[in-house]
Each structure stands twice: as C-alpha cells, then as structure tokens.
C-alpha cells in the first residue's frame, strides 16, 4: 500500500522496451520496475515476493541478464531490453524452458515459476550445457516453497538438452 507525503510526488514520463514493444509510463520517479510492469503496463507475470532481492520471484531479464525488478528503478530500465515471462512464447508456442517446466513437473503453485524460468533463460544463454551444480548455483537466487527444487533442476537440464538438439 502506498502512502503519500503532503507535497505532490513528482511523477515522470518513462519509456520502457518490454518484450519488443514500447510502453510509455507515467509513474513516480522512484517507481520500481516491478511496479511499472505490474501496475502500469499490466504484465503481472513478475511477482512481488520479498522486496529485498532474496526470493527472485520478481526476476526479469535486462538485456538478457537476470535481475530483480524489485531492486531496479523503472527510470533506470529505460534504454534496456526488458524481457518478462510474457515475452517468451512465440504466438502461443511455448519456449523450450517453459515447456520443460510444465512437462517435468517443475510447476506447482506457479508463483516462483516466471522468475525461475527467466533465471534459467539467463543461465542457458551464457552456458548452454550447464552441470547440475551450475544449474543450482544459477537458480540460487530463486526460492520455491512447493517443489523442493528437484524437478525444477530436471526441467532446466531437459530444456538445455532439447535446445542443444534443436541447433
């Protein structure tokens, strides 16, 4: 819940490139990227979990690199390519990582899933054939309360194998 000070807050116009589209958003100067995405643009895939960068539920990609959107100012995300979970599928066809999560049982309640998938995408872009240890390290900034992580790790491994075969 936002509280407002006595003076008017300074809202500012910002231009954000999200999933290949341009959005013009008017928001407070200190608005977080996750607020711009969820409250202004309506992309609610990124979740607000902790607001402290410890749970990873808010993970999005900035120029392909996983970041916490709760620890990113929306104004500083201008000029960068922002990718959210909504930007992965191609005309309804799931990204291999999305499909692997679904098929391998790596999704239960789904709250951590957008962040997990994007963190995995960030890993696979840098390291297409990660070891289990490397997968676990890359996902260590994403918490899951449901699955116990094993099927998530399996999903990332299967996705990396599929993507390797597809090339």
């Amino acid at each position: 819940m936002k509280t407002r000070s006595m003076e008017a807050t300074t809202e500012t116009l910002m231009t954000l490139q999200v999933n290949g589209r341009t959005y013009r958003v008017t928001a407070p100067m200190q608005a977080l990227l996750i607020e711009a995405l969820r409250d202004h643009i309506g992309l609610t895939g990124a979740k607000y979990g902790c607001g402290m960068g410890e749970c990873g539920a808010c993970t999005v990609l900035l120029d392909g690199e996983p970041v916490c959107s709760c620890l990113t100012l929306a104004i500083e995300a201008q000029g960068r390519e922002i990718t959210t979970i909504e930007g992965l599928d191609r005309g309804g066809v799931l990204d291999p990582v999305q499909r692997a999560f679904a098929e391998m049982g790596g999704v239960q309640c789904g709250f951590c899933t957008p962040g997990m998938i994007l963190a995995a995408k960030g890993l696979l872009a840098r390291n297409p054939s990660p070891s289990e240890e490397e997968i676990r390290l890359a996902l260590s900034g994403n918490l899951c309360r449901c699955t116990g992580y094993m099927k998530i790790v399996d999903a990332v491994r299967v996705a990396s194998q599929e993507m390797g075969r597809a090339e």
Partner: peptide, 9 residues
C-alpha cells in the same frame, strides 16, 4: 554475493 540477479547489478 547473494544470487545472480543481485550480482548482475
């Protein structure tokens, strides 16, 4: 330091 998301920024 923390997770990859924090280390990236």
């Amino acid at each position: 330091v923390a997770g990859v998301q924090i280390r990236n920024q």
